[in-house]
Write a protein that binds this DNA or RNA. Structure first.
Length: 863
RNA sequence: GCGCCUGUGGCGGAAUGGUAGACGCUGCGGACUUAAAAUCCGUUGACCGUAGGUCGUGGGGGUUCAAGUCCCCCCAGGCGCACCA
């Protein structure tokens, strides 16, 4: 009888051996192609969650597979260690953020280690350590010098709960992305990075990122939202004022019937000041909420300033309104309304009785009118003087040309993307290395005084930034004139750290530079892969589609332009976004959420509470969350079932890009498989097997096994490369079933079994590395499997001598026939038509057509 | 409103235009056991049935010898953007 697999002991043994042999430590090696696989690094919250397990398992499969395929694989790990939870912990528990963070890192690292990941831990770093963030400060000084970083007073999104500023990307539906609190608007002096200067490049380069999900590219495209149009001036009649308006439809200029300003447009105040009802109007605009629903329902309202503006080409006058649906922070904050061809303008004009003139008329439409709604489709220009008869594209070009000629306007491009505000009024972040001097103004900290370290002795007893009320830290002397000065107390947005960490890993301990150019180039540019290079495979959650992934792309470009790296335009050549992990929810009789471990299913299918015995309601399967308590603890899973079973289950069933439902039966099934495989291998008798396979001496069953072996080698390789890990697992199980069912008829057959067993172990290694090592050793190998090459498959062994294919009659399957693999149409026809079922289905009708696709199908067309 | 994605057994999901449901989970039957657990073997799309059929990939059309797969229209769910001129 087979011995039982001691999972814990065995898994520990192999992790220790890998560690002792330093097998995952890599360096630049030009004799091999490189492969850089990276998973999004974790925030050190203290415990890993199942999402981490999924993320890092996926990465590890790729890393181990590529290693076996002969690549020099970089697979590093570190900690995204700055951020608010550390400060909250300090406030709630009085524990210093630095201590809290490093303790969390320690416990999380222990958990990650127990997963058996093939990580080069020698490159580990935490972004909260000065050894990391000092380089960020150095780069920032360069950005300042280059004009990429600048300071200006601006209205910012203020999160009243976190007491800090948020970037536009961090405001969702007018609420803070973390706190969900309504964002306030405040005026503050803030540091910005000129991401808008890179808007075009960020947009254009998306096209080449063909190993990114379309979804993410589209989201970034939407976010940048480039629009081409005309910006031009209108004179305000009877004044010297001019109003600049922006439009993407300059072709509809002759259909203009009003001008509209944003309520907070500087000219709005000037034109409406003191007029009856203006204050009330502004109040009404502000009264509307910022939620989706409010915007959806909000009626378009306007305030007539009484002023008119002169149409730059017609000389005609149109009224100037202030309107609630015009946004100050897009374009120029002023538009002209063309009700005929814009639904918003149509709504507004209808309400205020303004003329609606069609200027674009579709061809071949009887009784065309714009009385019911605006027309936004294609057509020819009408009522538009010199534009009449042109199509929209030509009319746009023509009118931009005319406006430029008369000096009233110019063709231009607008973006929704705003510059990235990077100042945060927090302690636990990278200090911004500048000093304010009364005489010299804002002075960069000289390079030799870097890093500007965070002070350790801080208190969190007052709200807002501890750096601000630290007794001494902010006091310093001006580097220029030596007078008393004060430090910048804001710190960087924590997305700063995660914007360049992918490069730091390539030279993680460099004390002088963010990264050595040569080393960065080896790991990020030396493949023959086209496009922009960067990390070969990046893996993480889709929630970072805009924020992190856009900032990291931008940062890569400015690091390149500032000479910190060379030959890389994009940080991540391949991106894979994994789905969420979900679980059933459970509520007790009082409606309180309870943990899955507290709910038990009885034999009658009814759920009860493990302790109280009262009945439990099973709720929907949703994303694991602490509030719904539908979470499972990876540490418990790893302890109970082992890393291999956890990894196997998390890769089974669901394709990685989709959500995965975590189930007890699923993890148990995986665990059973691990044990079953072990037992089978322990029972396997390979004594007498030959080194060379004597093809002629093999039984039919052995030939089938060899075919299964080579098909599986091909299938798993292709599945992993396509990120179809669920299929790779299915192939593994199918192959196992074939091996387990095989009974060798003699020594020759044993050599086929030996081949299958060896292949199986290497193939399962990326998924269940501990088990694979143990079996490899059991097969008598003295070397570690981790260094073993991926097997190659023999194309000629993939096909069998005979094949079974379906026979259709008029498209319906009626029979299956077995033919020699190389049978020609004549032979196929003979066998197919001889089938009784085929004859019956033909029902005496004449054969009209005979279709034979070798190896695939026979279709008999009868009528 | 616009854009993208998804829809296949009781469930998760397979399927270069070519035998739909691989692989697994669950269920059912059996073996082993004093009994249970574990394990192993068989079975598991629906309907009629003795053989053998009929139906079946969200719905409706179409292309094709052949459609889950391609095209058109619609329905449902999810995600993203959202008064961006």
């Amino acid at each position: 009888m087979a011995q039982r697999y001691n999972i814990k002991e065995t898994e520990n043994k192999w992790r220790r051996k890998w560690d002792e042999a330093n097998v995952f430590e890599v360096s630049e090696d030009t004799s091999k192609p490189k492969y850089y696989v990276l998973e999004m690094f974790p925030y050190p919250s203290g415990r890993i969650h199942v999402g981490h397990v999924r993320n890092y398992t996926l990465g590890d499969v790729v890393a181990r597979y590529r290693t076996a395929k002969g690549f020099n694989v970089l697979h590093p790990m570190g900690w995204d260690a700055f951020g608010l939870p550390a400060e909250n912990a300090a406030i709630e528990r009085g524990q210093h953020p630095d201590k809290w963070t490093h303790e969390n890192i320690k416990s999380m690292k222990k958990q990650l280690l127990s997963m058996g990941l093939s990580i080069d831990w020698s490159r580990e770093f935490a972004t909260c350590d000065a050894e990391y963030y000092e380089h960020e400060q150095r780069m920032f000084l360069k950005f300042l010098e280059r004009g990429i970083a600048y300071r200006k007073e601006s209205v910012v999104n203020w999160d009243p709960v976190d007491n800090t500023v948020l970037a536009n990307e961090q405001v969702i539906d007018g609420k803070g992305w973390r706190t969900n609190a309504p964002v306030e608007r405040r005026k503050l002096n803030q540091w910005f990075l000129k991401i808008t200067d890179y808007a075009d490049e960020l947009l254009d380069d998306l096209k080449g990122l063909d190993r990114w999900p379309d979804k993410v590219r589209i989201m970034q495209e939407n976010w940048i939202n480039r629009s081409v149009g005309l910006q031009f001036k209108w004179d305000v009649v009877g004044t010297d004022h001019k109003i600049e308006a922006f439009t993407t439809r300059p072709d509809t200029l002759f259909g203009a019937s009003f001008l509209a300003l944003a309520p907070d447009h500087p000219m709005a105040k000037v034109l409406a000041e003191g007029k009856d009802g203006f204050d009330a109007f502004i109040k009404e605009c502000q009264a509307h909420g910022t939620s989706e629903a409010a915007i959806e329902k909000a009626e378009k309202i306007g305030f007539d300033t009484g002023y008119k503006a002169t149409h730059p080409l017609l000389g005609r006058e149109v009224p100037i309104y202030i309107a609630n649906f015009i946004l100050m922070d897009y374009g120029t904050g002023a538009i002209f309304g063309c009700p005929g061809h814009d639904q918003r303008d149509w709504d507004f004009a209808t309400k205020y009785g303004l003329p609606i003139l069609p200027v674009v008329v579709p061809e071949d439409v009887e009784g065309f009118s714009v009385e019911e709604e605006a027309y936004t489709g294609e057509g020819k220009l009408a009522n538009s003087e010199f534009l009449n008869g042109m199509d929209i594209e030509n009319a746009k070009a023509e009118i931009i040309k005319r406006c430029e000629e008369i000096g009233y306007g110019f063709g231009t491009v607008q973006y929704r993307l705003r510059d990235w505000g990077v100042s945060r009024q927090r302690y636990w972040g990278c200090p911004i290395p500048v000093i304010y001097c009364e005489d010299c103004g804002c002075v960069p900290v000289p390079e030799d005084q870097l890093p500007v370290k965070l002070p350790e002795d801080v208190s969190f007893d007052k709200p807002s930034n501890p750096l601000e009320h630290h007794p001494t830290w902010k006091n310093c002397s001006c580097p220029k004139c030596g007078k008393d000065a004060r430090r910048e107390t804001d710190t960087f947005d924590t997305f700063f750290e995660s914007s360049w960490y992918q490069f730091r890993y390539t030279d993680a301990k460099n004390p002088d530079l963010p990264v050595d150019k040569e080393k960065a180039a080896y790991w990020t540019t030396s493949t023959s892969d086209k496009n922009y290079n960067g990390v070969d495979q990046y893996i993480g959650g889709v929630e970072h589609a805009v924020l992190h992934l856009l900032y990291a792309r931008f940062f890569t470009k400015i690091m390149r332009d500032c000479g910190f790296i060379e030959g890389v335009d994009e940080p991540f050549n391949g991106l894979f976004t994994q789905g969420m992990v979900t679980h059933e929810t459970y509520q007790d009789s009082k409606g309180k959420w309870i943990f899955p471990t507290e709910a038990v299913k009885g034999g009658d299918g009814k759920w009860t509470h493990r302790e109280t015995g009262e009945s439990v309601t099973v709720g929907p399967i949703i994303k694991m969350s602490k509030s719904k308590k539908n979470v499972i603890d990876p540490e418990e899973i790893l302890n109970t079932y082992g890393a291999d079973a956890a990894r196997l289950f998390i890769l089974s069933d669901s394709p990685p890009e989709r959500d995965l439902e975590w189930t007890e039966s699923g993890i148990e099934g995986a665990w059973r498989f691990v044990n079953k495989v072990y037992a089978s291998f322990m029972d396997m008798d390979l004594s007498g097997s030959l080194t060379d396979i004597d093809e002629s001496a093999l039984s039919d069953g052995a030939k089938d096994l060899r075919r299964a072996t080579h098909k599986t080698i091909k299938g798993i390789g292709e599945a992993i490369e396509a990120f179809a890990m669920n299929k790779a697992v299915a192939f593994i199980r199918e192959f196992y079933n074939a091996i387990n069912a095989f009974k060798p008829a003699g020594d020759a057959d044993k050599s086929a079994l030996d081949e299958a067993a060896r292949a199986f172990v290497v193939l399962i290694n990326p998924i269940c590395p501990h088990l694979a090592e143990e079996l490899w050793e059991a097969l008598g190998h003295k070397t570690m499997l981790v260094n073993e090459d991926w097997p190659s498959y023999d194309e000629s062994l993939l096909v069998s001598d005979t094949i079974t294919i379906g026979v259709q009659v008029n498209g319906k399957l009626r029979a299956t026939i077995t033919l020699p693999a190389d049978a020609d149409e004549k032979a196929a026809k003979e066998v197919a038509l001889a089938e009784e079922k085929v004859q019956r289905a033909m029902d005496g009708k004449a054969l009209r057509k005979f279709i034979y696709v070798p190896g695939r199908i026979v279709n008999v067309v009868a009528a």
